[in-house]
Amino acid sequence: MTSFHEFIHMGGFAFYVWTSYAIFALIFAWNVFQPLFHQRRVRERLARRSRGMPR
């Protein structure tokens, strides 16, 4: 790669290359955020439960 235009253009295969990388980014993002949100939900649920429970 020598120029930004060349980089975007991907020798005419821009659609295939960039769609692949977009799916990759989405899947990685899902893999990061889904467990983090899930963990927060679980912690909140358990915290509520254990506050209502005698120690």
């Binding site: 467990p35 963990q39 912690r43 358990l46 915290a47 506050r51």
Partner: peptide
């Protein structure tokens, strides 16, 4: 990385009745 993050949540859920989990979830 993500395996450990998921596994930690799963451990919290499974050990929900133990004292250390109750401590961990209420301390924050």
């Amino acid at each position: 990385t993500m395996l450990l993050v998921r596994a930690r949540t799963e451990v919290l859920e499974r050990e929900a009745n133990s004292a250390w989990v109750r401590e961990t979830v209420t301390s924050q």
